[in-house]
Measured scan of single mutants.
Amino acid sequence: QVALSRTQVCGILREELFQGDAFHQSDTHIFIIMGASGDLAKKKIYPTIWWLFRDGLLPENTFIVGYARSRLTVADIRKQSEPFFKATPEEKLKLEDFFARNSYVAGQYDDAASYQRLNSHMNALHLGSQANRLFYLALPPTVYEAVTKNIHESCMSQIGWNRIIVEKPFGRDLQSSDRLSNHISSLFREDQIYRIDHYLGKEMVQNLMVLRFANRIFGPIWNRDNIACVILTFKEPFGTEGRGGYFDEFGIIRDVMQNHLLQMLCLVAMEKPASTNSDDVRDEKVKVLKCISEVQANNVVLGQYVGNPDGEGEATKGYLDDPTVPRGSTTATFAAVVLYVENERWDGVPFILRCGKALNERKAEVRLQFHDVAGDIFHQQCKRNELVIRVQPNEAVYTKMMTKKPGMFFNPEESELDLTYGNRYKNVKLPDAYERLILDVFCGSQMHFVRSDELREAWRIFTPLLHQIELEKPKPIPYIYGSRGPTEADELMKRVGFQYEGTYKWVNPHKL
């Protein structure tokens, strides 16, 4: 086992960053958080920038500027975001240094004079007029057009580079997404736009490419001749908990499936790229999406959770019991969808996408189930092999396979070949997804960000279904809070070829 401390991990990262040409360590950078008073800024962006600063992973002359409508001070920003920093008493001095680099400007999102004030403020910072500028839009999409237009007109660096990070949702359907994309691309070049999907920053999602293309053993079996089906799962054990009003506007397909799960599907299904260059990788992902037809209604199961009468606390409440959810809402909190990649490698292999709230566990994984062994000599005792990439929690890679049961006879039983990170790298604290992705933006690497043509294809696949749901308002199937979801989803999976045995229990190697 390799035991690495946080300091050692960050030392390795620093070495990698400083050796590259793309990370300008000594240049002045300004990180501007648009929507600095909001939840995302408070819980994710400010803490992430602090962790990067604490670990010495930001360029040395980096300033952080918050911008929002609320009249706040840096002290206010500190008060609301610091509880999420997880700072230790030993880091007190470092924390003071961090907040000394912070400033805040209040202004409207659609007022040109406010942006001119913001620009004057940035120019007044040390070497601010020639600094590289990175704008993070932690804002609702309704203000994107006004904000990007004003940034472009008043706040661009004339000497350094300018980059803009856009948070999902990128529209509600193909038409609104196209409108937003066309607007942003009329102001910024594609190499300046970073559409963030934080799932692409997760260690195991990034590991998929290495697993596939750096190991000879997987190449020959990664196709329709050997793989019976692919299941991509995202499960949350909690409901909307008072935030249903926002969720109800989008629903589970827009929230998770059309982005996170579809991105994971691309990494499983794509061909080997010409290189690890950002556009070479994204070219292959677009090719996969172009091979997927629009979702067919007979390959869809929609569910909505109801309270568990035997549960406790939140578990007793259904989705419609959330006071922020519109009365009688038919918005799905669970969806199972089957897609097919219609190309030579994957023809006929079902890709089953499942996601839901208020389920029995927290889990995100990719599961490849292989065909049955031909010419069975073990009297149907063999179960199908599976390769599982567990994204969260407890990152893991393992192969479910058959071995001989101890004893006199040739009785096979299920076991696993474990390729888990935790076994080799004991207690290594890896940077989280937002840390990686923000560092990628500083480096100018777009590999783990969504390109406009990729986004367009993703919406093309799901828009007809979303429009049909909005028009017909089908009643989702009720499922109990804390269950596996509607049984109809299991029946759909069985119908397209997935075999669920229920006889195997994964042993978490992190707890051995």
Rank of each mutant, 00 (worst) to 15 (best):
I253E: 03
I253T: 10
D255E: 02
V256N: 05
V256H: 00
Q258P: 05
N259A: 02
N259S: 04
H260I: 02
H260P: 02
L262K: 05
L262Y: 04
M264R: 04
L265E: 02
L265Q: 00
L267V: 07
L267K: 05
M270A: 08
M270D: 01
E271F: 00
E271R: 06
S275W: 03
T276D: 12
S278C: 09
D279L: 12
D280R: 09
D280G: 07
D280N: 09
D280W: 07
V281F: 00
V281N: 04
R282E: 04
R282G: 00
E284L: 08
K285Y: 01
K285W: 02
K285M: 04
V286Q: 08
K287I: 06
K287T: 07
K287G: 09
L289S: 07
K290S: 12
K290D: 09
K290Y: 07
K290F: 03
K290R: 13
I292K: 03
A297Y: 12
N299M: 11
V301Y: 02
V301G: 00
V301A: 12
V301F: 04
G303C: 02
Y305L: 02
Y305P: 00
G307K: 14
A315F: 14
A315W: 10
A315Q: 13
L320D: 05
L320M: 11
D322E: 09
D322Q: 05
P323R: 14
T324V: 07
T324K: 09
V325S: 07
V325F: 03
V325N: 05
V325C: 08
P326S: 06
P326Q: 06
P326K: 05
P326N: 06
P326G: 06
P326I: 07
P326H: 06
R327S: 13
G328F: 12
S329I: 00
S329T: 12
S329M: 00
T331Y: 00
A332T: 05
A335W: 04
A336V: 15
A336W: 00
V338L: 10
V338P: 10
V338N: 11
L339K: 02
Y340W: 10
V341A: 05
V341W: 02
V341Y: 01
E342S: 13
N343K: 05
E344F: 08
R345G: 09
P350C: 01
I352W: 04
R354L: 00
C355P: 03
C355F: 00
G356F: 02
G356H: 05
K357Y: 02
L359M: 15
R362N: 06
R362S: 09
K363L: 06
E365L: 03
L368H: 02
Q369C: 06
F370I: 07
H371L: 09
H371F: 07
D372K: 06
V373T: 11
A374L: 14
G375D: 14
I377M: 10
I377A: 09
I377Y: 11
I377Q: 07
F378E: 04
F378I: 07
F378Q: 05
H379F: 10
H379A: 15
H379V: 13
Q381W: 07
C382M: 13
C382Y: 14
K383H: 14
R384L: 00
V388R: 05
V388K: 03
I389L: 10
V391G: 04
P393F: 01
N394W: 09
A396S: 12
V397P: 04
Y398W: 11
M402V: 10
K404Q: 02
P406W: 05
G407K: 04
F410L: 13
E413G: 08
E413L: 12
E414C: 11
S415T: 14
S415C: 14
S415Y: 03
E416G: 09
L417N: 01
D418N: 07
L419I: 06
L419W: 04
T420D: 15
G422D: 15
K426R: 11
K429V: 09
P431D: 13
Y434K: 04
E435G: 09
R436K: 13
L439V: 14
D440P: 01
D440Y: 04
V441W: 01
F442Y: 08
C443R: 10
C443F: 11
S445D: 13
H448D: 08
F449S: 02
F449I: 04
R451V: 00
S452C: 09
S452G: 14
E454T: 02
E454Q: 05
E454K: 00
L455N: 10
R456H: 08
A458N: 02
A458C: 08
W459F: 03
H467E: 08
L471P: 06
K475S: 14
P478M: 08
P478G: 11
Y481T: 08
G482P: 03
R484P: 04
R484V: 02
R484D: 01
G485S: 04
G485N: 02
G485M: 01
P486Q: 03
P486M: 04
D490V: 07
E491W: 12
M493D: 06
V496T: 12
G497R: 08
G497D: 12
Q499P: 04
Q499W: 12
Q499E: 15
Q499K: 15
Y500D: 03
G502A: 10
T503A: 07
T503R: 10
T503I: 09
Y504G: 06
K505Q: 14
